[in-house]
């Protein structure tokens, strides 16, 4: 599957939060993501825009860990990537396995998220308000699953959700949190 996703800088976070709380399917779910990105020696995955990530999600229903592989970018304008993801039962074991296979931690950081769900044009949409403690600002991420054939339609739907929330097209960004955190850490 392809994760059809767009990301924007949020200028008026309080207004967007208030709108999200009243227009989505239920109130926001606060979650903290602890992300570790792995790479091969020489950062080969990073060089090709690919990602291998172990994410532990702390939320209202406990903690769960997912392993995600993202292939290269399939849509330059949005930065959307093909994605495979699976939940893993043992957080310690998956870190051991990935390291044992020769991958090294590239970067580790936290995302503080407030997640919302909605449906538009027959698509399940995930809307997330994001803060990353080490970098200034609040972000909005909107994503849905797509195939290669309907990626354009999926991205249009994603944009409609963002526009309804008052996001300006000029605030769309393809900057990666990994790059921003690395820059912040010098």
């Amino acid at each position: 599957m392809i994760e059809a996703e767009r990301k924007a800088v949020v200028r008026d976070a309080e207004r967007v939060l208030a709108t999200l709380e009243t227009t989505m399917d239920g109130p926001g779910r606060a979650e903290v993501y602890q992300d570790t990105y792995y790479d091969l020696p020489g950062a080969l995955l990073d060089a090709e825009g690919r990602e291998l990530r172990v994410r532990t999600v702390h939320g209202r229903d406990g903690a769960r860990t997912v392993l995600t592989y993202k292939g290269g970018v399939v849509d330059e304008a949005s930065g959307s990537k093909s994605e495979s993801e699976t939940e893993v039962a043992d957080t310690g074991a998956i870190h051991d396995i990935v390291r044992g296979l020769g991958y090294q931690p590239l970067i580790r950081f936290e995302k503080h998220c407030r997640n919302y769900s909605t449906t538009l044009g027959g698509r399940q949409i995930l809307v997330t308000l994001v803060r990353v403690p080490e970098i200034d600002g609040t972000w909005l991420e909107v994503e849905t699953q797509a195939t290669e054939d309907d990626l354009g339609d999926a991205l249009d739907t994603v944009w409609r959700v963002m526009a309804d929330l008052g996001i300006d097209e000029g605030d769309l960004t393809t900057e990666l949190y990994t790059d921003a955190v690395r820059a912040a850490r010098g």
């Binding site: 939060l17 926001g28 606060a30 979650e31 903290v32 702390h58 209202r60 407030r114 803060r131």
Partner: peptide, 12 residues
């Protein structure tokens, strides 16, 4: 205040 309302430190 905004941050703690949107991203509360008590998760569960």
């Amino acid at each position: 205040a905004f941050e703690l309302a949107a991203f509360p430190e008590i998760l569960r």
